[in-house]
């Protein structure tokens, strides 16, 4: 099932509100409005036509502002959350995306739909800083407690020390 077929099926089921097709450079995906994310993902899991019983991955990206050659804004700065869903019985993979504003990166948690989402959402919060509302235990999973900032953001500033351990480099790399 391609993303276009999935969108068609969603509209047939009456769940097409706030969902559009995202034509990526490689694979198409479903771009869902933030308020509709949880309802759409629940439908993708429960509806017989989709049957996405496996959540492969949750991840996030920090998107910077993008302008074309004439200086016209193509994409505003923001965040993007991506869910990869797979149906084990029907053998298809669906990608669902959601764009979030730069000053308010919040989206509903799906940890109660797929238990696998629990740690993935913690990792996404840890590294990208996207808040998943309704998550049972949203705290750092990879970086130690007390770490400041979210390292996979583009404007991240590297720390100089942590817990008394110096993290700086001694000398710059010699230029050849």
């Amino acid at each position: 099932m391609t993303a276009a077929e999935a969108l068609e099926q969603l509209r047939k089921d009456g769940q097409g509100d706030g969902v559009e097709l995202f034509a990526g450079p490689k694979d198409a995906a479903l771009l869902v409005r933030r308020e509709r994310v949880k309802a759409v993902l629940r439908h993708l899991r429960d509806a017989r036509a989709f049957g996405c019983d496996l959540l492969v991955m949750v991840t996030g990206t920090h998107l910077t502002e993008k302008k074309d050659a004439k200086g016209v804004l193509v994409r505003a700065a923001g965040f993007e959350v991506i869910w990869h869903l797979r149906s084990v019985t029907q053998h298809h993979l669906l990608a669902v995306k959601c764009r979030l504003p730069i000053d308010d990166p919040r989206v509903d948690s799906v940890a109660d739909l797929w238990p696998a989402a629990d740690w993935h959402e913690r990792e996404t919060w840890d590294l990208v800083g996207i808040t998943f509302t309704g998550h049972p235990n949203l705290r750092r999973i990879l970086l130690p407690e007390g770490w400041e900032g979210h390292p996979l953001r583009k404007d991240y500033v590297y720390p100089k020390e942590f817990g008394g351990i110096n993290l700086e480099v001694d000398a710059p790399w010699p230029t050849p």
Binding site: W147, P151, P159, I165, N166, L167, E168, V169, D170
Partner: peptide, 20 residues
Amino acid sequence: VGGGPYWKHGYNVVKGIDKF
């Protein structure tokens, strides 16, 4: 010895254990 391949972009890698 000195951070290795994470020398430049390893935000949490200690650049050599002789720091501690």
